[in-house]
Design a protein around this nucleic acid. Structure first.
Length: 168
DNA sequence: GCCAACGTTGGC
DNA sequence: GCCAACGTTGGC
């Protein structure tokens, strides 16, 4: 089973990872708001692979590049880190929350989230167009056609290339 | 606003 | 367990 699916898993060769991209729509939650709040529980992730990354792989101290999607322009808005590993995402249990999941129960809640903090301003915003133009980033999972995962692992070299583009 | 990609749902 | 329909993501 794991042999078959493992070979087809497009992210397998990125794991284990210590560097991540986390996407957010700035209209909903921006990097600037993270700077103001200092840290934020990353709730509302309702995709199983992204959930698995948070639950199984993301540890305190891991570096996180915050990516603004559905933005003009889209791109890397800032740097942060994981400051708390995954705990249950109780927004799934709250009927008034936009992240409510009617299938989640108190003792059977599949959803969790990490806390992201220590936001750090980058000298330069790194646009998606710049990322596409960078040869060393041609394998970046973010650039895969139709890539919709909101959390993506980065290779060390990819993280370093992105930081270099940011001027840090 | 359009639309391609693709995860999820639900009928069978 | 297949697969068509549906909903969401996210760049443009």
């Amino acid at each position: 089973l794991s042999k078959v699916s493992g070979n087809k898993d497009p992210v397998a060769s990125w794991l284990p990872a210590e560097h991540w991209i986390m996407k957010t729509e700035p209209d909903v939650f921006s990097f600037e708001l993270l700077l103001k709040r200092k840290e934020e529980f990353w709730d509302g992730v309702r995709n199983y692979m992204a959930r698995n990354f948070m639950r199984d792989s993301m540890k305190v101290g891991h570096q996180v590049l915050v990516y603004h999607s559905n933005a003009t322009p889209p791109g890397i808005a800032g740097l942060a880190q994981v400051v708390r590993s995954a705990v249950p995402d109780v927004s799934a249990l709250d009927p008034k929350s936009e992240y409510f999941d009617s299938k989640a129960k108190k003792d059977q809640n599949p959803w969790c989230g990490v806390t992201v903090g220590q936001p750090r301003v980058l000298p330069k915003f790194v646009s998606l167009a710049q990322i596409r133009n960078e040869p060393s980033l041609s394998e970046l999972l973010l650039l895969r056609p139709g890539q919709r995962l909101s959390i993506l692992p980065l290779k060390v070299s990819e993280f370093e290339s992105l930081l270099r583009l940011s001027g840090l």
